[in-house]
Design a protein around this nucleic acid. Structure first.
Length: 376
RNA sequence: GUGGGUGUCGUCAAGUGGCCUAAGACCCUGGGUUGUGGCUCCAGUAUACGUGAGUUCGAAUCUCACCACCCACC
């Protein structure tokens, strides 16, 4: 079977599990490790698409969007009519769509999980809907994303072993149904999702089952759902070793600067996270010298750039005092400038991580970054 | 000058004799945010009742004087 997505491993870090690779997609090659900005509603909030494309120094080629949200509004049929999601949102790069599985988890009180799928109520108008693995793939087929995610259940933290086991086995059965339903593998690839919570034996069980299905990529789900970071790192350590080395490994929902380094060090190739854009809209910037809460009074007359070591559009043109003013005034430009900076920061940090792996100095770069960043 | 009205945290504004060592909102200050139901959530600061005297067991609430501001008329 020919796949839309193919992974090439370029180099492995001699001292850690970090690795440098390329993800070949129908919409271009993606250098890994990679950070994907999130565009849930067919838009990366507060960003023009050309600015998303221009993030970092090499540009950004892969973003994430969401099956659940686009199904509810405007509807996947409309997007199909528009010529697919790429066309609809004017994005020439690659797209990965989440399956709606996470919403099953995050919209807890509005849903009911059965073997068949998930019945839930729309948060928009209260109407009742049924999501099944088949439905999720059908929608993602209409969207035309390069990478489709399997419809899974992301178990909450904490959750007891028995529940997580039942949940993971159902997720595997759902994955098989996703695989069986999908047809055009040359156009779109399907990634499987490992679950298993914080239990090592369950992670192993989940990994065995999904790897058996021989998919073009695998992701680690069910992390970063409220567990302490140390536990997340521990689980990550185990998880990566359970996945095949010749396939991309995607850690879902993770994207604080420190987690990116810790993930790469453990062998993760792909990350996505709403954090940079969400916190940007709330006045928080990630910078080379740590978090900058632009709301703070101390920036009232700080005419220096947001990040002294950043060359993004925001940092090249505006001062902290101006950004603080924009935020306090609730001006739209505040969200735009801070979002662009935060995304640029993560994307370009990932570029430097890639370079450091190529030059066998990943750990040195990590230390340098941590020393400059300070407290996370 | 005469008549009327109003004076409660930075602002707006509840409260009209005891449950007010005074609600709430905004502002302000700080924090949170990880496969986006959030231009959002959480927390904190201020001995604020114009001033002075009086009535009363008890006054932000009643009385008097004064002060300030607003309106109308001269």
């Amino acid at each position: 079977m020919k796949h839309a997505i193919n992974y090439t491993l370029i180099k492995k870090d001699p001292r850690t599990k970090a690795r440098r690779g390329v993800l070949h997609t129908p919409h271009g090659d993606i250098q890994t490790p990679v950070f994907m900005p999130v565009g849930t509603q067919a838009t990366v909030k507060a960003m023009k698409i050309e600015d998303v494309a221009g993030l970092g120094h090499e540009g950004c080629g892969l973003i994430l969007s969401n099956t659940y949200h686009l199904y509810l509004r405007p509807g996947h049929e409309l997007i199909k009519k528009a010529g697919g999601l790429h066309n609809f949102m004017n994005w020439n790069g690659a797209i990965l769509t989440d399956s709606g599985g996470f919403q099953v988890f995050s919209l807890g009180p509005l849903r009911k999980i059965t073997e068949e799928g998930v019945k839930f109520r729309s948060y928009l108008d209260g109407s009742s809907h049924m999501f099944t693995p088949e439905k999720s793939i059908e929608i993602q087929n209409c969207l035309g994303s390069d990478i489709m995610m399997a419809f899974d259940e992301c178990a909450p933290y904490p959750a007891d072993w028995h529940y997580v086991q039942k949940s993971l086995e159902r997720t595997t059965r759902w994955l098989k149904r996703c695989k069986d339903y999908h047809r055009d593998w040359e156009r779109q690839s399907l990634f499987g999702i490992m679950q298993g919570g914080v239990y090592k034996d369950l992670r192993a069980q989940s990994a065995r089952q999904i790897v058996d299905l021989d998919l073009p990529g695998y992701s680690i789900g069910g992390l970063s759902v409220g567990e302490p970071k140390e536990i997340m790192y521990e689980v990550m350590d185990d998880c990566v070793d359970l996945l095949p080395a010749d396939k991309p490994r995607y850690l879902m929902g993770v994207g604080s600067p420190d987690c990116l380094f810790e993930g790469v060090e453990r062998g993760i190739d792909m990350f996505d996270c709403v954090l940079p854009t969400r916190v940007a809209r709330n006045g928080l910037a990630f910078t080379s010298v740590g978090r900058v809460n632009i709301k703070n009074a101390k920036y009232f007359e700080d005419f220096g750039p947001l990040d002294p070591n950043c060359d993004c559009y925001t940092c090249r043109n505006y001062s902290r005092a101006y950004l603080r003013h924009l935020f306090k005034s609730e001006e739209i430009l505040s969200s735009m400038l801070l979002s662009e900076h935060n995304l640029h920061f993560l994307v370009s940090t990932m570029e430097k991580i890639r370079k450091s792996i190529e030059e066998d100095r990943f750990l040195e770069y990590k230390k340098e970054f941590y020393d400059s960043y300070g407290e996370f």
